[in-house]
Amino acid sequence: MTTPQQSRTSAPQVDVRGPRFGAWVTTVVLAVVLLTGSGWLLAVQAVVFAVGAFAGLRYAPYGLLFRTLVAPRLGPVREREAEAPPRFAQLVGFGFALVGTVGFLAGAPAVGFLATGLALVAALLNAAVGFCLGCELYLLARRARTA
């Protein structure tokens, strides 16, 4: 048998329900951004994404919310996953939120609405079916960059 190529085996783990909960909260926040056109609310969401992406999921605000308020009401942790995929998703979300925030605050609401709408699709897919759009796009981006 061929030797499997494996990387980063002792990576940090998170309860799978944490990122899913965070995706639901994100979906709701982004829906409110769309309904109010509030660039400042989107800016707050951008900061939330940035903390998760750059500081790590253990500091992510929605993750803290999950651990302190939601997790104690649920059963014990049944499944854990590596931190890298959901953390990368936060980075992708940060990109969309940043573009949208600049759009709203710089007087180009069309850009704001578009970026927020795309981020909402990604967040909702993540929340509802556990699909990680950013993770899928990662390979496409890597392919394109060195093509």
Partner: peptide
């Protein structure tokens, strides 16, 4: 309230 946002939300 801007209706653009509601339309984008629906499309999303």
């Amino acid at each position: 309230m801007d209706s653009t946002g509601a339309v984008v939300l629906l499309v999303a």
